[in-house]
Amino acid sequence: MGRGPAGGDGGDALEGEIFCARRLEVSTAQELVELVSGQARESLLDSDGLDPMRDNGVRAGWAARGLVAYVVHLGGATLTEEISVAAGDLLADLRHLFDALGLDWDAALASADMHYRAEIVGEL
């Protein structure tokens, strides 16, 4: 079932089956806007937890909507940028927000990584 590009950072190797979200074939922020604009919002509340690939697709959809809101707010050239540039800009701005709120960026990343790893092996 869903072996995919988990980790990739040289961290701990994951054993067993990996359930990454289905790949979204977009290259620009505008393409992502168009992809998610017509999709219904999904929830994990109606999930029985037996399809972690579907659940991780729902999670990816939530994040896609957040990235879309960011690029639409900025508008202009941001919409035509490669998706990796727009995502990187959002992460940088989130780090500025963490500074402004007095939150620990490294602790948040560690927690996010722990949750991500549990989700892709089907534990959450």
Rank of each mutant, 00 (worst) to 15 (best):
residue 122 G to T: 10
residue 35 L to W: 11
residue 16 G to S: 02
residue 89 D to T: 13
residue 106 D to V: 11
residue 50 L to A: 15
residue 113 D to H: 09
residue 81 E to Y: 03
residue 63 A to S: 04
residue 21 A to G: 12
residue 122 G to L: 05
residue 4 G to T: 00
residue 39 Q to W: 13
residue 92 A to P: 07
residue 45 L to T: 07
residue 68 V to I: 06
residue 24 L to W: 11
residue 119 E to C: 15
residue 45 L to Y: 07
residue 4 G to N: 00
residue 122 G to C: 07
residue 75 G to F: 05
residue 88 G to Y: 04
residue 90 L to F: 12
residue 29 A to I: 05
residue 13 A to R: 15
residue 124 L to Y: 03
residue 110 A to G: 09
residue 67 L to K: 03
residue 53 M to P: 10
residue 43 S to V: 09
residue 96 H to I: 04
residue 35 L to Q: 10
residue 89 D to L: 15
residue 77 A to Q: 07
residue 74 L to H: 14
residue 12 D to L: 14
residue 82 E to T: 11
residue 84 S to Y: 10
residue 85 V to D: 13
residue 77 A to N: 05
residue 92 A to K: 09
residue 81 E to N: 02
residue 45 L to E: 14
residue 97 L to W: 09
residue 96 H to Q: 12
residue 3 R to D: 12
residue 42 E to T: 10
residue 51 D to W: 03
residue 103 L to S: 07
residue 74 L to K: 15
residue 93 D to G: 01
residue 32 L to R: 08
residue 35 L to E: 13
residue 40 A to P: 05
residue 56 N to T: 09
residue 46 D to A: 13
residue 7 G to N: 03
residue 39 Q to S: 07
residue 19 F to C: 00
residue 44 L to F: 01
residue 44 L to H: 10
residue 66 G to H: 13
residue 87 A to T: 11
residue 11 G to P: 06
residue 26 V to Y: 01
residue 23 R to Y: 05
residue 2 G to T: 13
residue 93 D to A: 14
residue 114 M to H: 14
residue 37 S to K: 14
residue 74 L to R: 15
residue 75 G to N: 06
residue 60 A to W: 01
residue 95 R to W: 06
residue 20 C to F: 04
residue 116 Y to S: 00
residue 47 S to R: 15
residue 41 R to E: 15
residue 118 A to F: 08
residue 120 I to H: 02
residue 5 P to C: 07
residue 84 S to F: 06
residue 21 A to L: 05
residue 35 L to T: 13
residue 2 G to R: 08
residue 95 R to H: 08
residue 83 I to Y: 09
residue 83 I to N: 01
residue 10 G to S: 05
residue 20 C to I: 10
residue 117 R to C: 04
residue 37 S to L: 09
residue 98 F to P: 06
residue 34 E to I: 01
residue 15 E to V: 11
residue 10 G to F: 04
